[in-house]
Design a protein around this nucleic acid. Structure first.
Lengths: 230, 230
DNA sequence: CGAGCCCTACCCTGTTCATGGTATCGCGAT
DNA sequence: ATCGCGATACCATGAACAGGGTAGGGCTCG
């Protein structure tokens, strides 16, 4: 060591971004920031996986769309191998699934590329201060996930399930059970003694209420919200 | 009927803030903003409740600490009476309980007073654009709520998975995760970087091993056997 | 080195699903 | 009494899925 590391522990940063100009720009900024040390600057998931496996990382800054995989995979691996490390996403992706996936994988920061020029150093500082720098568009997805809607009629609902209790109608709950168990339209119709034309109507309504687009997603969502337990 | 609902798309804003100087300052800013109309500027929860009950509101901007109650109560009432309306918190409070309460009550914006001078107009615009202007410190609380749990890869879960651990191959477990979350062939193929022809092959093998005939059944079975936890 | 398994990939075919629209009936609320 | 909504029902179309067969490359293990 030639005195690069003094008393202050520099933040070991791993950068993962497939777009060359963007990566270089970010790398330069990070390199020029005295508080951090750029462990590596990767263009592929594979390279990042190698780095995460071999090196000690404090902070992963990653894109999501990668030529050989998805940035969330890097986040997952990082959280597994180095639970103390932080992860921040910098991406153009803003759809609900991607955002929720990233957050659930352990990302604590999420900046949208499309917005105004990113102050990456400020975001890193924010993150390391225990905050979550998140673009407002991304935040909305997360907030929606928590807050949803529908007013609690009483004062305060202790269990989260109580809030969603009225979300689905009784019939929809019947249908939900059915799709969780893998029944087809026909089986469900027979079991509930209704026309097989009616089943998809209920299913559509369930999808709308749970913001799902197919059966598995609906079951996953319903389970997550405590509407059903598998 | 006063018949003025369609003429102008000015945002009807209700301000609730007990601190006089702060309230006046915010009121002036909002008043000077051509995009919005200040319906009322309240110093107490009681006054705000009256306004929410009697007037049509598009956006509530509220403090939380109030002399006669809590701002969250105003948010709850608003969401109950006027579900289309938005709510934004401006407060010094940042504890988990308060933040989660506010978000669950329906707030889609949450700015911390202590931070840098608030650009309230930008935040309002953000909010009305469908985003969620949220201070990064607040965001961390929310993110923790969503993602702060255990990493999905069961590093320390030998008891349940032991018997069936070898039932599915690693790749099949990847696929299983995907179908539990509702991914299509194409999405799964992209995320795992394999051909979309290969995905159904794995799925078929999973069905065979779990004795399932469709996705929901497979997820149900896998969950029941402890292969995945939703 | 051949056996066995996993992962990969493609072909084909029939079924099921997702999604739109439209409509009737009953019930509780306005 | 009209309105909103839940539940029921039908039609139609394109996308996605299930299930069958075939097969090459890579890996490990006797």
């Amino acid at each position: 060591m030639t005195g690069l590391e003094r008393d202050k522990p520099a933040v070991r940063i791993l950068l993962l971004e497939d777009d060359d100009p963007v990566r270089d720009r970010l790398a330069r900024i990070i390199d020029g920031w005295p508080g951090g040390r750029l462990v590596a600057s990767c263009a592929t998931l594979g390279e990042a996986i190698r780095q995460i496996t071999d090196e000690t990382i404090d902070l992963l800054i990653t894109d999501l769309n990668l030529p050989d995989g998805h940035g969330v995979q890097a986040i997952r691996l990082l959280r597994e191998r180095q639970p103390e490390a932080q992860a921040m996403v910098i991406s153009v992706l803003a759809d609900d699934r991607t955002v929720i996936d990233a957050i659930e994988a352990g990302a604590t920061g999420y900046l949208l590329k499309d917005s105004d020029p990113i102050d990456i150093v400020a975001a890193i500082g924010d993150l390391l201060a225990g905050h979550s720098p998140i673009s407002s568009k991304i935040a909305r997805t997360i907030v929606r996930r928590l807050g949803g809607r529908e007013p609690p009629s009483g004062a305060t609902a202790p269990p989260p399930a109580a809030a969603d209790a009225q979300l689905l109608t009784p019939r929809e709950m019947d249908i939900l059970w059915g799709i969780a168990k893998g029944f087809t339209y026909g089986e469900l119709a027979e079991r509930l003694q209704i026309s097989k034309q009616t089943v998809p109507v209920h299913i559509r309504n369930i999808y709308r209420k749970l913001q799902a687009n197919n059966r598995s997603e609906a079951v996953y969502e319903a389970s997550r919200r405590g509407l059903i337990k598998l």
